[in-house]
Design a protein around this nucleic acid. Structure first.
Length: 229
DNA sequence: AACTTATCCAACCGCCGCTAC
DNA sequence: AGTAGCGGCGGTTGGATAAGT
């Protein structure tokens, strides 16, 4: 392996520790679990191997298709891609891509018309600030840099200059703004179903503990376009 | 059977952004 | 404002194993 392999006993200790104290506070995990591992190793072992509901084995055809499409949209953002594949970890997806898909697709691209491949643009999902909480940014799993770029390039920010929240009048307005920004107005049906929780979240203006995020919404839009084109 | 090469994938590393002080 | 410590991410490494000769 790339490092020192985990033993069954270490796995057991880590599992027990997480069950007892919960996820997070990784810096304390080695001490609490009595493991001679660094915080990162513990976290990685949990996320990639020990966490419940991790799907193992070969990728299904639909999963592979999804990976290819998502990679076109997102680039090497494995954690985001994995987030769309229940039970799969970022490491799994990355490994699968590197072992199977990158070579295959490179070979395909080489044989394809070069003009065609020029049209493929990586769309980075652009998180929008709705509130000023950094908690929300964390929940987006996105770097602030991207958001700064979004704000600078697009002028879209839902924060007032003084940092106070500026709530958009309605969901439709808000979504319309995003579609407009993506140049997708007219392409995307405005009567699409919002994910559960989204509606309440938007109307209440609450966001920090939300299940939804803009990455997801924009990704859905991208995917919709991609699948329907 | 013995050796070489290719593939897979778990683990590590370095960097980044955020938070608290 | 500066900084240390943290969680998280993507890239890379290297040992195990399969496939090929």
């Amino acid at each position: 392996m790339g490092g020192v392999a985990w033993t069954e006993e270490e796995d057991h200790l880590l599992k027990k520790c997480i069950q007892q104290y919960g996820e997070g506070k990784w810096h304390r995990v080695p001490l609490l679990a009595g493991l001679n591992r660094c915080r990162k190793s513990c976290r990685l072992r949990w996320l990639n191997y020990l966490r419940p509901n991790i799907k193992r084995g070969n990728f299904a055809e639909e999963e592979v298709e999804m990976i290819v499409k998502l990679h076109k949209l997102l680039g090497n953002r494995w954690s985001l891609i994995a987030g769309r594949l229940p039970g799969r970890t970022a490491n799994d997806v990355k490994n699968y891509w590197n072992c199977h898909l990158s070579k295959k697709l490179n070979a395909q691209e080489a044989s394809e018309d070069k003009e065609l491949s020029k049209d493929v643009q990586i769309i980075r999902p652009q998180a929008r600030n709705i509130g000023s909480t950094s908690m929300k940014r964390r929940s987006l799993g996105e770097s602030q840099t991207d958001q700064v770029v979004v704000q600078q390039e697009s002028g879209i920010t839902l924060d007032d200059a003084d940092g106070k929240n500026h709530m958009i009048e309605s969901q439709q307005d808000m979504i319309y703004s995003c579609l407009d920004q993506q140049g997708m107005v007219g392409d995307f049906p405005m009567d699409f179903q919002l994910e559960e929780g989204f509606e309440a979240m938007v109307s209440s203006g609450e966001g920090s503990s939300s299940q939804w995020n803009w990455d997801d919404l924009l990704l859905d839009m991208d995917l919709y376009n991609d699948f329907s084109s």
